[in-house]
Every structure is written in C-alpha cells, then in structure tokens.
Amino acid sequence: MTQISNEAEFRHALAGLDADRQRAVAALFVKHVLPLCDDERIAPVTDVAAREDVPEDKLAEALRTARTTTTDCHARCGAAGDWSAQAGYFVARAAVAALTPAGQMPGGPAWQAAMASRMAKTCEAIVTGDDSLGRESEEQYRILVDFLNS
C-alpha cells in the first residue's frame, strides 16, 4: 500500500507516472475542485482528460477548449478583482495543465494541475474568509494514494 504524507513524496509519486496516468490523476484533482467553476466548458474537458483510451485529436480539442476558457476568465490587468471568479479561473487552468502534453509543462501536468487546484481553493478561502477549509494538498495526497492503490 502506497502512503503519501508530504510534498516531496507527492511530487516523487507524480513524477513516476507515465503520461496517460499523469493526465488521469490530474483530472481527478480538477474534479475535486470542479464545483468552484461555474463555466460549463470545464466539466466535459475534464471527463476527456480522465479517460485512458482517448484519441489524440480529442485531447487536442479538449485542450483548446480549456485554454479558451482560461483566457476568457482571467483577471484583467487593472480591473477590480473578483476572487470568486478567480477560483473558476484556476480550475480552468488546472484543466489546461491536465490536458497539456507531458513534455510541455514544467514540473509535469499532474503537479501543475494540483497546484492550480490548490489556488482555486485558496480563492474560495479568500471569498469566505474561512481558513478552516480542508487543506487541498491533503485531499490530493488521498486522491493520489487511492489512484495508485486501485
């Protein structure tokens, strides 16, 4: 049984996954924060990322959709910030990371998806002012352990 209890073990375990499994676990990280994004384009592309047998053209199409969503919802320079909307932006960025080919993403797709998902949760904490919300990193350790042990 694999156990992950810290960031180093988490990164090491993610780095050991091949490209398809990185994408699959990245999709699980995105799904965990999906309720924070009200853009309807992200759930379907996350489903695509989660599939193991998905053809290249479907992946590319899903990546384009995720990127479009990200550029549509980022905070505009100089505009008054909205942390609720920012949570959705980071979920979209997590989906982009999940769908980006492994060689194009410093740190790897799963790691980047994990980071963006955590940022989405931070935005939620800023909005609610409730810092007692569960730590997303620990949720991600659990998700990865379940994935590796399944």
Binding site: N6, E7, A75, G78, G81, R118, K121, I126, G129, S137
Partner: peptide, 22 residues
Amino acid sequence: SPMGVKLPALEAQIRHLEQEAG
C-alpha cells in the same frame, strides 16, 4: 492595488503556500 487586492487576500495566499508547501 489597481485590482483592489487587499492585505488579507495576500495573507491568505501566503498562509496557504506556507501550510501546503511547507
């Protein structure tokens, strides 16, 4: 801040980075 970012928001970002990434 031109985007209205207040100190508590930055503090939340910092706190989460510290807690989650050590």
